[in-house]
Design a binder for these strands. Structure first.
Lengths: 229, 229
DNA sequence: CGGCTGATTGAATCAGATCAACTGCTGTGG
DNA sequence: CCACAGCAGTTGATCTGATTCAATCAGCCG
């Protein structure tokens, strides 16, 4: 792909926002474009972290798998989001696996080239600090959710989050129900039952992937664990 | 406290390792010393992040509390470790609460002064990137443990970790059993029962806070979820 | 000696996982 | 164009790990 086209994309990415075009061009030079079908593995947990990735289109899930095969989705990244960058600094292996959820285009930034760039560009370092901080924050929330809340609370939180993002009370699920269950740290059966209970109690109404929040206050109480479903 | 004494301490801290003494002196100038009794609150979740802390002596737990009052310990920090620094970059509030586990001495670094320093010292930024990366990694593991493993596996992992740190098969628990249970995302009763089961099966033998690993291989199988306790 | 806190044990209960069966949709190949 | 394989989703029955509630015990300090 042409460098200018990549620069255009980089300009719209949080991670690189506000950086000089000159630096972006350098970045674009070291980036490699990848196209992947749905369900393709980008890397496995334990692989050497040779660089990080940026999602240009499509979606990627980051997950861990237990010995018994249960999968916990840690993150789902979409357009403009970077992943794998921790390995760039820590200099060791990927702690989790990455697989495309849809046909996707990615940009790959090799570790060494990026490190050199970072050393001469302090603003970039600062920006990455902010990014990692935010990600760390997200994990604090995830740990809390998983350990402190039960499934209905996690699901209610997720719905409220999606509704806030779409600015309406109706929205589409961003993941298939099976994937969503893995993201919430549970299994499809439990998700299905929980959703049905919520519908029966008039909290939400659902049609496939389309969900409508009917009783927002009630849902918030569930999300906070004040009320039991 | 005298600046020189603080510089001595900073030299031994991962976060600032390898920085010029000149910079350390600047850092020491902006640091404030705090002495706290056991069980004192340093900040609550939601408080404005006015700066970050460094543990000079003692220990500090970082935790979240659910509505029902159950506490999940996210981290325990001891000598030379920094906490609260995420708020310095993200520029918002603390995502969790901090309380001393013992009488402790802390150094406090106010946000604004630190940010200025960071802007003129790129190495420091890089070092913090590495720190955050490691912390992120730790959280990935924690999420996995909480969602994928049952309590016996989490406890076995913890024991193996402590044993590795002490380089022997005998070690002291670093936390009271009640605190440990919160760290593992469970409750004292469950911890007690699990430990007893492990003793009965000849995996470990315990005397109060002193634990000895008897059957390492067996414990590893439990930790990995291959075998059920 | 009380009295407090941390640790332990027992019994009852529950949320969620597991196992199994069934539905409905989609896409492919005969 | 239909049949059937295949997968996501749902539903039911059962099982179990872990929490809750309650009581007791051990150690420590004033």
């Amino acid at each position: 792909m042409q460098t200018e086209k990549i620069v255009d994309i980089l300009k719209r990415v949080d991670l690189f926002e506000g950086l000089d075009t000159a630096y972006l061009a350098t970045l674009a030079m070291i980036a490699k474009t990848m196209r992947l079908d749905k369900g393709r593995t980008i890397f496995w947990a334990g692989d050497e972290g040779k660089g990080f990735y940026l999602v240009q289109s499509g979606r990627v899930k980051i997950f861990r798998t237990s010995f018994s095969g249960k999968e916990q989705i840690l993150h789902v990244f979409g357009f403009g989001e970077a992943f794998g960058e921790v390995a760039v600094f820590a200099g060791d292996n990927f702690p989790a696996s990455a697989v495309t959820l849809e046909p996707s285009e990615l940009l790959f930034f090799p570790r060494d080239a990026f490190r050199k760039l970072l050393a001469r560009e302090p603003d970039l370092a600062l920006q990455m600090l902010a990014l990692l901080s935010k990600r760390l924050r997200a994990f604090v929330n995830k740990v809390e959710e998983l350990s402190l809340k039960e499934v209905p609370a996690r699901l209610a939180s997720h719905f409220l989050l999606l509704a806030a993002a779409s600015r309406t009370d109706t929205f589409e699920l961003d993941l298939s129900k099976t994937e969503l269950s893995k993201y919430l740290g549970t299994i499809p059966e439990t998700l299905s039952r929980t959703l049905k209970k919520m519908e029966n109690q008039g909290l939400v109404s659902g049609n496939g992937a389309r969900i409508e929040i009917v009783d927002r206050a009630g849902l918030e109480e569930i999300a906070e664990g004040l009320v039991r479903l």
